[in-house]
Design a protein around this nucleic acid. Structure first.
Length: 982
RNA sequence: GCGGAUGUGGUGAAAUUGGUAGACACGCUAGACUUAGGAUCUAGUGCCGCGAGGUGUGUGGGUUCGAGUCCCUCCAUCCGCACCA
């Protein structure tokens, strides 16, 4: 009987769904294993073959773990709040909840577009998800708990001494007892107050102060405002000054916004990286994003006036090398300190600097600019006068916006000093700084009073000690990481559980959660620029308190920062997750997803996990133990080449005249390019009245062509022609000519690039499942190459995998009545060897996430068993278990044909490897001479190295390769290789 | 500029601890078979050479009996960061 994948796959998917085969148990004696995919945003465009790559890998692994006896949690859900649904709602007036539902469940939208539906697309791939645990971030049952977590953050502050988050009540009690002078907490408060002062504060003032400590807080902050999107963006949503989504310009704007005090967790986010198994690339990106620098903040007094300039430096040991200071042009003290003499020049420089965009300032590294202010600071140690300059190489947004310039030790300072002829003091013993600064930390300090003779490391410590002792600074650690803006001026996001009274925020009581999204007449901002929620009538809110509700909504990353916890207990209406459940499931053992979330989702999820851990809600403080980033699957676009004609409209055309359009096959095009004569001939041939091929053959341009009408680079001419003729441009006015290869085919060119509609290179899984079956597609995606690597999609090889499954099926000798004709005899030695070799390799490969080599090993195994004419039931039964995690449908079918109960395969026992089956009496020794393999010789496995040596020397071919020499040495690695050294 | 990753046939790739480079698959060549199926089977396929043989894992060098694998140098491609004090 033939392998009929269509029926087989349909039946088993139905069976799994009806029997809830992949239901995970919350209570189990089995060890747990949690395999998670980054959850998708359900876009209307649906899935292409690149999306399921990670899902297939995680599913293969989840199934493998089940076979190993683990209780596996393998859920799926949707990150269903987001901009595309909202933009679509603005365009079509459809409620985003409706389009979101259609995108997930399939159907037709009100524009008449057929939507396949994410769920349907996922289902046909045969994933072993426990769908009873599905979550959607946009469902009120889910975002009730996103709001609840927000409330916990609001009611907490970060205690630096305990190094964890604590309830805000503790802080209030401290304020009441002692004020804030001794409070060591993450905060934005730049003044101190006593207990008496605190008690005297009005309620409003008290709350304003508390906002400076809460882990989520309202503050007027400079935000990345994107006018085109009408919303603010987080730092990681801005790439090169434009929005990550859509590429719209972004400007800085001061707005009252909710923020998350993620900075409080900077150090733990950094050190936590060492405890998790992620790629170096992602860890480095996070380290970079957090941007820790250790050093000191030092105050330089001004020569005149009360103010002091505070700088941050990582090299306080070089303080005696300071010969000038540089402020950012935007530094608040600039105008105040500039002397009359320089006022005009400074104003001019500030103007110039402000005209430059951030980008220009970055790009223009070579061009050194700056301006003396005429003012002087006093060097805190030497008491000498130090010039104060402004320069746009100093950024207002980093550190204090001012630097102490040490030209001998910093290249930028050195360049600046050289350019403006400022003194360069050498404080490094025996280092030449005439050509460049000496930036290494290995020099011994000289010319520096108490620091003389010390290496940098010790000098830094001593310098900080002195700076603190003398009271003009202190040791300080600086982070680049900034607090994350948490408000979005959008409709389709989580509402805040917040209302306002006298413009002060108050939390809504838990009993009223969730605050659901109110209906609005339009999904646009109001006329006076308020977010869309401001359009909602008072009665449209399910709960309304105070003067008004919060109009902002939460950003995209709110729901995704904790969703992995909700899968453990998705229907719990009393808690975000029950304690005993999170204690059983713990954190995610394997997390698979794209690397584009390196500094966004992956950082925020770590932050929220640490916070929930601090409050005692979860027993771990890292969410994802192991992370694998799957590589992008790129499209393979096909092209036809069109040689344009020069079209003149001025001449009068004869009746029935048609312009000419010439499409030339790839190889012919390349011939013409290297052969000017042929090109001239061709031009003469085609140039008729009113038609003139372009002068230059290189002007032939590539037009993307739908990959569905290209097979093996050969264009389906008929379909292409009829497609073209339906396009107006080509109708009637053109005569289509195709210059073909000698064999009459048209060969297309190709290029590897991202999959996109405009390139006609999108391959959907649906089409391939229809043609070859889900098992073939699953295996083929794994077979393409290492999971982490980016690779081009090419359907060419899929036949090979499909043929493998057919060959696998044939091993079972299934007769026309559907019965497998198999032998119950004891398996042959060869078959046992083949099987156990495969058990070992496939198991090892899965353990190191090498999914592609696993498929190869199945192919080798089936090839060998076919050659052996093996029809042994015991062998095939074990093989079915092995293959089942990759190709579950066909294996379920075969499993039943082997006489097993339907549905038990998923929980069968992964075959055990027995080394004894691999032992052979003889072994083929490759014999090398000076490292070059020359021939093989079969020798007993048991032979010791001495005997092997003698046997090789006695072998006739050995003499030939020795060429009369006596071997200097013989290397024998038992069971591996013999090398004769001459 | 800094950091990370990757360079192996016509193509996707394999080689897990230094031990037969190119497994497996696509494609291609030649043939067989047929109830014409994206079937199956046989042989071949890194490059040069009729052959013996030579040569070969981005470049150049080194360590080693032996290097795709380890060390150094340079080059290319991709990704991230970037006047970070």
């Amino acid at each position: 009987m033939e392998y009929n994948f269509i029926d087989i796959e349909k039946n088993w998917r139905k069976f799994w769904a009806e029997n809830k085969t992949f239901k995970a148990e919350d209570k189990s004696q089995k060890p747990k294993f949690y395999v998670l995919d980054m959850f998708p945003y359900p876009s209307g465009a649906g899935l292409h073959v690149g999306h399921p790559l990670g899902y297939i890998a995680s599913d293969v692994y989840a199934r493998y773990k089940r076979l190993q006896g683990y209780n596996v949690l393998h859920p799926m859900g949707y990150d269903s709040f987001g901009l595309p649904a909202e933009q679509y709602a603005i365009q079509t007036g459809q409620h985003p909840a409706v389009t979101t539902k259609t995108n997930i469940e399939g159907g037709t939208d009100n524009q008449g577009n057929k939507i396949a539906g994410y769920r349907n697309q996922l289902d046909i791939m045969g994933f072993s998800f426990d769908w009873d645990r599905e979550v959607r971030t946009s469902s009120p049952e889910y975002y009730k708990w996103t709001q609840w977590i927000f409330k916990q953050l609001y009611n907490s502050y970060y205690d630096n001494t305990a190094d964890k988050a604590q309830t805000i009540d503790t802080l209030i009690a401290t304020f009441e007892a002692n004020g804030n002078a001794d409070v060591n907490a993450a905060n934005d408060c730049d003044f101190t107050f006593s207990a008496e002062e605190w008690k005297a504060f009005s309620d409003k003032r008290k709350e304003e102060v508390l906002q400076m400590y809460r882990l989520t807080f309202l503050a007027d902050s400079w935000v990345n405002w994107c006018p085109a999107l009408g919303t603010v963006l987080a730092n990681d949503e801005v790439v090169n000054g434009v929005s990550e989504r859509g590429g719209h310009p972004v400007e800085q704007k001061l707005m009252r916004q909710w923020s998350m005090r993620i900075k409080a967790y900077a150090e733990r986010l950094l050190t936590g990286l060492e405890t998790i198994d992620w790629t170096d690339s992602i860890k480095d990106q996070q380290r970079n994003w957090i941007g820790k620098s250790v050093g000191a903040s030092v105050q330089f007094a001004l020569e005149s006036g009360e103010d002091k300039i505070e700088v941050f430096t990582t090299r306080p040991d070089t303080i005696y090398g300071v010969s000038f200071m540089v402020l950012a042009p935007e530094h608040p003290l600039v105008d105040e300190i500039t002397t009359a003499e320089y006022a005009e020049a400074v104003a001019e420089y500030k103007k110039q600097a402000s005209l430059k965009s951030e980008r220009d300032r970055q790009a223009d590294v070579k061009n050194i600019t700056g301006q003396n202010t005429g003012a002087f600071a006093i060097h805190p140690f030497t008491g000498e006068k130090v010039q104060i300059w402004i320069g746009d190489y100093v950024l207002a947004s980093y550190g204090t916006g001012a630097v102490m310039a040490v030209p001998c030790g910093d290249q930028r300072d050195w360049d600046f000093a050289k350019h403006f002829g400022i003194e360069i003091i050498n404080i490094f013993e025996g280092k030449d700084i005439s050509e460049a600064a000496y930036t290494e930390k290995d020099a011994v300090i000289a010319n520096s009073d108490f620091l003389n003779g010390l290496p940098a490391k010790k000098a830094i410590k001593l310098a900080i000690f002195e700076i603190e002792k003398r009271g003009f600074g202190k040791g300080k650690t600086q982070y680049r990481l900034r607090d994350a803006v948490f408000s979005r001026q959008r409709y389709w996001g989580e509402p805040f559980p917040v209302y306002y009274k006298d413009e002060m925020p108050y939390l809504v009581d838990d009993q009223y959660l969730p605050i659901t999204l109110p209906e609005v007449d339009k999904y646009l901002p109001t006329e006076d620029g308020e977010p869309p929620l401001a359009r909602a009538e008072k009665s449209a809110w399910n709960h309304f308190e105070g003067d008004r509700m919060e109009f902002n909504t939460m950003p995209g990353w709110a729901g995704s920062s904790w969703y992995f916890l909700r899968y453990m207990d998705p229907k719990n209406d009393n808690e975000f997750v029950a304690k005993e459940k999170v204690e059983y499931w713990q954190n995610v053992d394997l997390y698979i997803g794209g690397s584009e979330h390196a500094t966004g989702h992956l950082l925020y999820a770590r932050f929220w996990t640490k916070f929930l851990h601090d409050l005692g809600y979860v027993p771990f403080d890292e969410p994802f133990k192991k992370l694998i980033n799957q590589g992008m699957i790129l499209g393979r676009s096909s092209f036809v080449y069109r040689i344009p004609t020069i079209k003149s409209s001025s001449i009068i055309k004869p009746p029935n005249f048609k312009f000419l359009d010439v499409f030339i096959s790839l190889n012919r095009l390349n011939q013409l390019k290297s052969n000017p004569k042929d090109w001239t001939l061709l031009k003469e041939q085609y140039s008729t009245f009113g038609n003139e091929l372009v002068e230059d053959i290189n002007k032939a341009y590539a037009i993307p062509v739908d990959i569905n009408i290209v097979d093996n680079d050969i264009l389906d001419l008929e379909r292409y022609r009829s497609n073209l003729e339906s396009v107006n441009e080509f109708k009637e006015i053109t005569d289509l000519k195709f210059i073909l290869e000698d064999d009459g085919t048209y060969i297309c060119g190709h290029e590897v690039e991202k999959m996109s509609k405009s390139k006609y290179n999108v391959q959907t899984p649906d089409e391939l499942v229809e043609k070859f079956g889900a098992d073939t597609l699953r295996m083929y995606e794994m077979f393409l190459g290492p999971l982490e690597q980016a690779k081009p999609w090419d359907t060419k090889g899929i036949n090979g995998v499909h043929n493998f499954l057919r060959k696998f099926w044939r091993l079972f000798n299934i007769d026309e009545s559907g019965v497998a004709q198999l032998s119950n005899d004891a398996p042959s030695k060869d078959a046992l060897k083949t099987l156990h070799k495969t058990i070992k390799k496939v198991g090892d490969d899965l353990d190191r996430f090498s999914f592609n080599t696993g498929v190869s090993n199945f192919m080798i195994c089936v090839n060998e068993l076919t050659d052996q004419k093996c029809n042994n039931k015991a062998i095939l039964e074990e093989l079915v278990i092995l293959v089942s995690s990759y190709a579950p449908h066909i294996c379920e079918e075969l499993w039943v044909k082997l006489g097993n109960k339907a549905g038990t395969l998923s929980y069968a026992k992964f075959p055990e490897f027995n080394e004894a089956n691999l032992v052979e009496a003889n072994i083929q020794y490759p014999v090398s001479f000076n490292g070059k393999m020359r021939f093989k010789i079969e020798l007993p496995t048991a032979m010791n190295p001495k005997e092997v040596e003698a046997a090789v020397l006695a072998y006739e071919q050995t003499q030939k390769y020795l060429e009369g020499n006596t071997p200097k040495k013989m290397i024998v690695v038992p069971g591996k290789i013999v090398n004769v050294v001459m």
